[in-house]
Amino acid sequence: MHDLAQQIVSGLATGSIFASMALALVLIHRSMGVINFAQGEMAMFTTYLAWQFSQQGMPLWLAFPLTIAIAFAGAVALERIVVRPVERAAPLTIVILTLGLLIAFNGLAGWIWGYVIKAFPSPFPTTPLHFGSVAFSSQDLGIIAVSLASLGAISVFFKKTKVGLAMRAAALYPESSRTLGVRVGWMLALGWGMAAAVGALSGLMIAPVVLLDPNMMQGILVYAFAAAVLGGIESPLGAVVGGLMLGVGLNLIGAYVPFIGTDLQLTMAFAIIVVILLFRPAGLFGRRRLLRV
């Protein structure tokens, strides 16, 4: 029983990382109709920035928020300068651009920081937390708490604020939004900024676990994509639930189904993508568009 509870919590921890990255993918997919393949590498790159700051003696409580702010501002600028010229191009053009960004960020990180794996400081205590007789890793609990808090804040932002509403409207109904006075291009850029900020946070949370290297986010991006497809690529809530389900599911399979173990997890993620796309393309939470004429 204890073991099961621990496995679930540790699955929720990786799952909340998948969930955050999946949400980042969904935010951009909703407004541009494409997957940003560079999302993981952008997170990786900003995680290196945090590492650099902490190497220079900056405390983590300052380095982390600064990193997230840079991720946000950098992605807004990236959208306005690099993505904007192809905003109205065919989806394939944008996809190729994001693949180019993936390669660029990966190469740049390798060039600046090298390919030697680096330890990354954890913001959480190393001592386990005890609930009754069960001990949970503080790191896992910390990751879950921080991720869910940030996802909750984003949800409140989209539901309760005027800019959040305008971002949703601009993503789904760009032309109508324009006639209502919304600067749709800037809403798109804000979406990139938020996605990058969420991604940066995921990178910071997971780096102490997977260690820092230029390829650290590539597997995670595949899981995040699987989570987004599972939950419904149009649905932010679906992305989060999909991420948590995937995290817990893979962890339990890894622990209790020895012939799959941990070696085939990535294969499992791909299998989920294929099966969902075949049988339920809208995902578990995807809704068909409401329309009446």
């Binding site: 005027k162 509403l165 109904y173 109508s176 939004s177 209502l180 006075g181 919304v182 409401l290």
Partner: peptide
């Protein structure tokens, strides 16, 4: 501008549609 086909923000609520009208 009330466009041809009404430009309803169909997945948003009635209130959200009105709030978007007041965006400016």
């Amino acid at each position: 501008h009330v466009p041809e086909g009404r430009g309803t923000l169909s997945t948003l609520s009635v209130w959200e549609n009105l709030a978007m009208g007041a965006y400016t």
